[in-house]
Design a protein around this nucleic acid. Structure first.
Lengths: 249, 249
DNA sequence: TCTTTAGGTTAACAACGTTAAGTGTTGGAA
DNA sequence: TTCCAACACTTAACGTTGTTAACCTAAAGA
């Protein structure tokens, strides 16, 4: 007997791991990384704080595993957003709004993913080139198709430079608001929808050969994004990669 | 006798305050806010950590005072950069490069100023509307002059929206690099100069009526910015505002 | 039945920001 | 001169943090 014992233990171990991740996700997403303590995460799942260290080397690797999943979730939103799109220009408009919508709906995730310096965590081989895992790869493919279709201004030839410019614009529009989170009365910060739309318009007007046509696509994309919604936490995720981040791997 | 006693004490008190600020500035600028401890700042000036609390309520207000001065220094760089400028368009190009250059030269300061959520510190009355203290006011005045001179695209009418779009673009270009600080080999991050130039080109092409003329101004401004230089710490500052941030004010 | 091992616990550590309590020194008043 | 109050500073200490060490306990395999 005891044949399936190891399997069962492995299953239980994985379940515990998921419990930790889900509890941590919820806490981090509402109060931010630094404000959440290991003891608190432990209490949430009715374990002692030290037992978390059986599954994650430290707080940092715990949050990195969450980020890893979020990056994957993030990338897949782009893939989903461009299905049915009729031109690369339309895809670009939709993708931009997906980016901005993500930052708005999941601000704490966004903060961890793009506003906190990552400590030495180069993506795994399978994450590096897969647009389902790495949104930058998706963006670059999109720029490639814009280049191939001669949609871009003639002097734009470097796909990486274009991709990074696009990224910088949407990141700026998203991040500025997260830093100035409070309603700073003196600033007259414009409503998100206006700022996001103008950011996208800036990109299309600056980079595309036919900005007028792009304006129509942008309006359609905006209309198809009914509302960005309230900030919340990402839903729970399933193991996915099943990576070994544990100490006792 | 002892007539000037109080004055002398006040002077000594202020000198100590400056010592603390200068030590803190240097430490924060090289290792970042969180990595620096109060004990360490104290040791640097050969005092105990607790004596810092005679001058600043806590670590947070200490760093905020540094930020306050940096904001002022920051704003004055813009004023200095546009003297001799022959058109608002030229001013815009120069100002953009000043912004990006600042972020590059003083990355830790930039991080504190624009990438860390500020805790409830509305600017003082004299900082709110003075372009020497508040760079946003400078930027908005610049946009106003662009609007007044009919340099902007006809559908751009809201000065705040324009200013915030410009800000978002340059912030994105600057901040992305600070988050991805390591040379992430997989990303093929373009050299700063290329990315910054393209960010400015994006803005001028998207917002100005005559992008071709702007391109010339931009090239001139780029040529006038020989090199962004290496990251370092801001030089020491003099009391300036002489605000009372101390506990025993 | 004994041993090993995985997975949990409580206790403890070092470091942090910060506060409390104690120590001189100094300028002015009696 | 003597006393006192204010001040600048120091050392101890507190409460929390992330993390490690020491211990326990139940279950699997011999």
């Amino acid at each position: 007997m005891g044949m399936g014992t190891n399997e069962r233990r492995e299953r239980e171990r994985l379940a515990m791991r998921e419990q930790i991740l889900n509890a941590a996700r919820e806490l981090f997403a509402t109060r931010g990384y630094e404000a959440v303590t290991m003891r608190e995460i432990g209490k949430r799942i009715e374990y002692s704080a030290t037992s978390l260290y059986n599954h994650f080397a430290d707080k940092e690797t715990l949050v990195r595993e969450l980020c890893r999943r979020d990056f994957s979730d993030f990338a897949q939103r782009f893939l989903a957003a461009v299905v049915g799109s009729q031109s690369p220009v339309e895809s670009m408009c939709r993708a931009g709004l997906v980016y901005l919508g993500f930052a708005e709906q999941f601000p704490q995730h966004y903060r961890l993913m793009f506003m906190t310096p990552l400590p030495e965590s180069p993506p795994e081989a399978d994450e590096r080139d897969d647009p389902r895992m790495n949104a930058y790869v998706f963006l670059k493919q999109l720029v490639d198709s814009l280049l191939a279709g001669n949609y871009l201004r003639r002097d734009l030839t470097d796909a990486d430079l274009c991709a990074q410019t696009i990224w910088a614009m949407v990141h700026g529009a998203a991040a500025l608001e997260l830093t100035l989170n409070k309603q700073e009365a003196w600033l007259d910060f414009k409503p998100r929808r206006e700022r996001f739309a103008e950011a996208m318009r800036t990109l299309t007007r600056a980079m595309l050969r036919d900005p007028e046509a792009a304006e129509k696509q942008l309006q359609r994309a905006l209309a198809g994004t009914p509302d960005f919604g309230e900030p919340r936490a990402l839903p729970k995720t399933k193991p996915a990669g099943a990576k070994q981040t544990s100490k006792k791997g």
